[in-house]
Design a protein around this nucleic acid. Structure first.
Length: 596
RNA sequence: GGGGUGGUAGUUAAGUUGGCUAUAACGCCGGCCUGUCACGCCGGAGGCCGCGGGUUCGAGUCCCGUCCACCCCGCCA
């Protein structure tokens, strides 16, 4: 008797056969997805990464195969030979292969399977803890497999697109010199250099700039990055970026390349043609209108700026508004029309949300038929004149609810921006089938650190200011805008980048603003600064978060869904058990001592 | 670091004011069944109620602690 594998080759995947293949002799390999034993015949759904095909075992076709089919169980791995036949009126329209089945003449069991700890079917919601523990089984589930295959197609398409556009794929080291600032690094102790460490690269940033100095002109990499920060659904300790850098580039050149790349990816993944160019909005406009540097444009509900109205009315009789103005604050509101207006108790719940977002409270008003404010702490004191103007500015009619925040612009924006997103989801304002891409541009070059009050780089210290703001670097640093941009997709930051400083005078000014001395700069960034002195071309780039992108394009809920072997929120791999303990001998080899 | 939600057969869940011999569905095991595709029918096995203390005549249920997973804030491009 001939044996599979050694002598018989697979002819098709389990997702390939159609009615046109009727009559073909085929050989399929795969896993038993389900078995329906009707007594006189046995149906088996055979699954591989490409799909599922129904196989029927009939004693008249092969008594031996039929007998074996009665014994097999879910997740056994088998090979079989048979003939494709049409299912005619019995076709299953919900399956791509549902028009046919394979009448098996031979069956070989390659391996049995223990009973899996959870059902390997779509739509089952076994606890994620368990799914991660048996990730190799979870990956067999068609919807999980589909995401991983989609990731493959997206990265392949990205590679092809960028290579065709003249970008070189070059790898950069993961083990790098520690440089301060930005995310916390994982550290790798050096056995050969007692007491010294490598850092795992949080991004290839400096190296890709050096490629530009080297004259490679255009570089890309599907780069793994490492950050030792607390984790979220969209943050893993190691993650992947599509990293791009190009020489002789202004922001518009970067936009053009990345828009082409995104269009290719969307076409590949969804068959969607993106409208180009993408929308652009300055950071200041995004913050002002949406309270966010990554506005979700799938719905409206923009912030209404009431600052000037309140100023003209000198507070309009409302003490807290007047105080907010006096301390240099702003007053903004969200207006929910009557048909979306939350009830009184729902507004109270929103106030809880506001406090989560860092707000002190939620001033509100519900409009009566005459425009008067009810259910409002300001209802009695507010002057009718100001009230009328605010109602008009907000477009608020009878039954509408106004939700107000006042205070520092940063706080008002972050609270109302967060509330806007919350309401967008909760009230079903978000159009789920839309893809809204935009560039947010002209980010502030510097910001004030909340804890220390020091001026710090918003992006990183090599980010170039807008040409028209260079003169203000030393005099008004916080008013300087950067040639920095984020690509925002449906309210998610899909990527970000900047044009870098290639002029050592400008770089020196930036370091001065940041309070970094020449000596300190040399010590921290020596090799980059040195390289910039040897004919560095104007250059800039961007990095796209591949995990987030694939998550959005596949409808995943977290990037864990699109990473083959993800870690938990505490950075553990439940399957392998990493991280794990270390022996005294290992520590000694690394010249490390255990604490305590 | 702070806050929240959850943890009960293999899995997903229910479990009332503390009274339980802890339910159900799916899965698993055995039997029957030739057109199923969530196959159907009959029968069966299966539990340290996350873990450790406490209150109580009595705890899945109440209290304290702890572990794990997830979400939010801080942090992080």
């Amino acid at each position: 008797m001939t044996r599979f594998i050694q002598e018989i080759d697979r002819s098709h995947s389990c997702g390939a056969l159609r009615e046109a293949d009727e009559g073909a002799e085929v050989v399929l390999f795969g896993w038993v997805a389900s078995r329906r034993d009707l007594g006189g015949c046995v149906f088996v759904d055979l699954r591989d990464r490409e799909g599922v095909t129904q196989v029927v075992f009939d004693p008249q076709a092969s008594g031996e195969a039929y007998g074996l089919a009665g014994q097999i169980r879910p997740e056994w791995v088998v090979g079989l030979q048979g003939k494709v036949r049409s299912r005619g009126a019995n076709a299953n329209k919900r399956m791509p292969t549902g028009g046919i089945e394979v009448l098996a003449t031979r069956l070989e069991v390659f391996n049995r399977s223990a009973v899996p700890p959870f059902l390997l079917e779509d739509g089952v919601d076994a606890r994620e803890e368990l799914r991660l523990q048996y990730r190799y089984l979870d990956l067999r589930r068609p919807e999980v497999t589909r995401r991983i295959l989609m990731r493959h197609r997206i990265t392949q398409r990205a590679r092809r697109h960028l290579a065709d556009a003249g970008f070189l794929e070059i790898e950069t080291p993961c083990m790098v010199k520690y440089t301060p600032g930005g995310a916390r690094n994982f550290l790798v102790p050096s056995r050969l250099n007692p007491g010294q460490v490598y850092a795992l690269a949080e991004s290839p940033q400096i190296f890709k700039q050096l490629f530009m100095v080297a004259g490679f002109d255009r570089y890309y990499q599907i780069a793994r990055c490492f950050r030792d920060e607390d984790l979220r659904g969209d943050r893993q300790p190691e993650f992947t970026q599509i990293d791009v850098e190009m020489s002789f580039a202004a922001p518009r050149h970067i936009y053009e390349v990345v828009e082409g790349l995104m269009a290719a990816i969307f076409e590949e993944a969804l068959g969607v043609k993106l409208a180009r160019p993408f929308q652009r909005m300055t950071w200041a406009e995004a913050m002002g209108r949406f309270g966010s540097d990554k506005p979700d444009l799938r719905f409206g509900l923009e912030l209404v700026d009431l600052t000037e109205i309140v100023r003209r009315h000198d507070g309009g009789g409302v003490g807290m508004l007047k105080d907010a103005l006096a301390s240099g604050g702003v007053i903004k509101a969200l207006c929910l029309p009557a048909d979306k207006a939350p009830s009184r108790s729902e507004v109270d719940k929103l106030e809880v949300k506001v406090k989560e977002l860092g707000g002190l409270g939620l001033a509100r008003a519900r409009l009566a038929a005459d425009g008067g404010w009810t259910q409002s702490p300001m209802g009695k004191s507010v002057s009718p004149a100001m009230r009328v103007e605010i109602n008009r500015a907000a477009g608020a009619g009878e039954g509408a609810v106004l939700l107000l925040q006042f205070g520092s612009a940063d706080k008002v924006h972050s609270v109302l921006g967060g509330l806007r997103v919350h309401l967008g989801e909760k009230l079903g304002l978000v159009d789920k089938i839309r893809w809204e891409l935009l560039w947010v541009t002209d980010f502030p070059l510097f910001e004030r650190a909340e804890d220390t009050g020091a001026v710090v780089a918003s992006h990183h210290p090599f980010t170039s200011p807008l040409p028209e703001d260079v003169d203000k670097l030393l005099s008004e640093p916080l008013a300087c805008r950067a040639q920095a941009y984020d690509l925002v997709l449906n309210g998610v930051e899909a990527g970000g980048g900047s044009i870098r400083i290639h002029d050592s005078e400008v770089q020196a000014k930036v370091f001065k603003v940041l309070g970094i001395s020449d000596e300190e700069a040399r010590e921290k960034f020596s090799f980059l600064l040195q390289a910039l002195q040897f004919g560095a071309p104007p250059h800039g780039g961007l990095a796209l978060g591949l995990d987030r992108l694939v998550m959005l394009l596949t409808g995943g809920e977290s990037i864990r869904d699109v990473i083959a072997f993800p870690k938990t929120a505490r950075g553990q791999c439940l399957m392998s058990g990493a991280p794990s303990g270390v022996s005294d001998q290992q520590l000694a080899d690394l010249h490390l001592a255990r604490k305590g």
